[in-house]
Every structure is written in structure tokens, then in C-alpha cells.
């Protein structure tokens, strides 16, 4: 039996559904929006089926003064078909964070679930924060720049084609759905051949150009999945930059859900 409260919320849900259907019909996607969405769906589709992967990452941070700093991280990821991917990040350097492990269940629209194991405290802590826009380990990458790409995270607009790195590229504008995102939009260049991302421009909340991310050294794994060896992020506003170097990519290593839970955090390495 429905309580009054439940009834109201059910009614609300139905009317909301109606509204969204109506709005979909009323504001059908324009041709540019549809094409932008299609390209993004195709890009996601072409990379499906990697199941799981592991890789090593070196982060090189530079400030305007020319000072440099290095971070070393191991990343394990698990493909989740009907939701955001799961990822396990294990920190190796600097030495004082060695063994710290970060588990994240990303969700396309809802807040991610995240846990952190702190070896110094010998405890796993669940972190409740909607913030994904802050700098990752003090770098110019935000956590949202590193998390898995899900079609639902953005709305789209196709801007045209442009030559880049000797390839014809689609230029697609993406608008984050999450209001906690640090960006108003991103412009993404994907080559028309393989749908690999070559460049992303990030626009901050006041819509001025904040950062540019470029990808280079693409390699194909399992004759299907393209991964870039190098990602370079340049912050135009503060003059700092961060370079990511990926190595030891492995796919279908046999990881499963049991490697991505609270208990697995403590033994992760």
C-alpha cells in the first residue's frame, strides 16, 4: 500500500518522466547536436570490450620557475558495460605516499563512489565528495580529466572537421552534465579514421580557455584499442604544465569485481 509520501513522489516521478519525454520531443536535437552525439557514441563503441587493463603512469609536473616534480602511479581498470568503469589507482611515488590506493566507481551522472586506503593509518576511508574538478596530486590534471569517458557525462555539438597532426579530425564540443564540473565546455579533436582523441581544449567556468591536452604516441592493443603513450596538459592561465607518460599497457589480464572492492584496496600494489 502506498503511503501518502510515496504516492506523491511516485506522481512526481511520473510527471518528471512525462516532462522529459515532452521536452525531448519538443527540443529534438539539432543536426549538429545529433552528429556530435553520434561521433561520441561511435568513439565509445569502437573501444568497447577491453574488459580490464593495467598500466603504469609517470607524471611530470612543471611550474613557471622550471621546477619539476615526479609522481609514479599504477592504474587498474575494469570495464563496466551499463555504468561507469571501476578503477584502482596505486601510488608509488613520492615515497611517502607509497602503497596508498584509491578505488573509484565512476557513475555517468551520479556522484562517484570512492575509497582510499592510507597505509600510514592502516585504514580504508570512504570519501564523500562531489568534487572531481580539483588538481590530481597537485598536477594540472583534474580527476575528471582522468576518469573514464561515458557518453552520458556530456551533451554535444559537432563543430566541423579540421586538419591536425596530418589527420582529418572531427571537432566536437562537449558540455558537462555534472554541475560540479570545473568546465563550461571542452572542445575535442578526434581523427575520422580511428576516432582517437588528439587534442582537448578546456574552458573554465567563465568560458575562457584554461588548459589544452594533447595526445601523442598512439599504439594499438589487441588490434583494437588505441592508447596514447603521452598526454601533455598545459595550463594557459598559470603557465604550469603536466606530462603523463604511460607504459606497460596490458589488457584482459583477468581482473574481476573482487579486485575492485574495499578489501582489495589493502592488498593492492
Amino acid at each position: 500500500m502506498f503511503t501518502k509520501k510515496n504516492l506523491i513522489s511516485a506522481l512526481l516521478a511520473i510527471s518528471a518522466l512525462n516532462l522529459s519525454l515532452a521536452s525531448n520531443a519538443a527540443f529534438a536535437l539539432s543536426a549538429e547536436e545529433q552528429k556530435g552525439l553520434d561521433i561520441s557514441m561511435e568513439a565509445k563503441k569502437r573501444d568497447l570490450g577491453w574488459q580490464d587493463s593495467t598500466a603504469d603512469m609517470v607524471m611530470l609536473l612543471r611550474n613557471q620557475q622550471g621546477q619539476e616534480s615526479i609522481r609514479e602511479i599504477k592504474m587498474k581498470s575494469l570495464e563496466v558495460l551499463d555504468d561507469g568503469d571501476k578503477s584502482l589507482t596505486i601510488f608509488n611515488k613520492p615515497r611517502d605516499v607509497k602503497g596508498t590506493a584509491f578505488l573509484s566507481f565512476s557513475h555517468p551522472v551520479d556522484a562517484d563512489e570512492q575509497w582510499l586506503f592510507l597505509p600510514a593509518l592502516k585504514r580504508v576511508k570512504r570519501i564523500s565528495s562531489r568534487n572531481k574538478s580539483g588538481p590530481f596530486m597537485g598536477s594540472e590534471f583534474a580527476f575528471e580529466d582522468l576518469s573514464s569517458f561515458e557518453v552520458e557525462k556530456y551533451s554535444y555539438k559537432y563543430l566541423g572537421v579540421e586538419e591536425l597532426n596530418g589527420l582529418t579530425n572531427f571537432k566536437v564540443e562537449q558540455y558537462p552534465v555534472d554541475e560540479n564540473s570545473g568546465y563550461t565546455r571542452r572542445i575535442v579533436w578526434l581523427d575520422t579514421l580511428e576516432y582517437r582523441i588528439h587534442k582537448i581544449d578546456f574552458y573554465d567556468r567563465k568560458d575562457s580557455l584554461l588548459k589544452t591536452l594533447t595526445f601523442s604516441g598512439y599504439k594499438q592493443y589487441l588490434a583494437k584499442h588505441w592508447r596514447a603513450d603521452i598526454q601533455e596538459m598545459i595550463n594557459h592561465q598559470n603557465g604550469k604544465s603536466t606530462e603523463l607518460k604511460w607504459s606497460n599497457y596490458n589488457f584482459k589480464t583477468g581482473l574481476n569485481d573482487s579486485d575492485f572492492n574495499r578489501n582489495s584496496l589493502k592488498r593492492a600494489r
Binding site: 611517502d96 596508498t100 600510514a120 576511508k125 565528495s129 568534487n131 590530481f136 597537485g138 570545473g182
Partner: peptide, 18 residues
């Protein structure tokens, strides 16, 4: 040293842009 470093790592990951 480790504890402080790990706290900061945790904290930095939870902060928003800016």
C-alpha cells in the same frame, strides 16, 4: 611523514576546481 603526505593526497583529491 607518511601520514601527513597521505592526508594531503586524500584532501587534494577531494577539493573542487580553484
Amino acid at each position: 611523514q607518511e601520514m601527513s603526505a597521505q592526508y594531503l593526497l586524500l584532501y587534494e583529491m577531494s577539493l573542487p576546481y580553484g
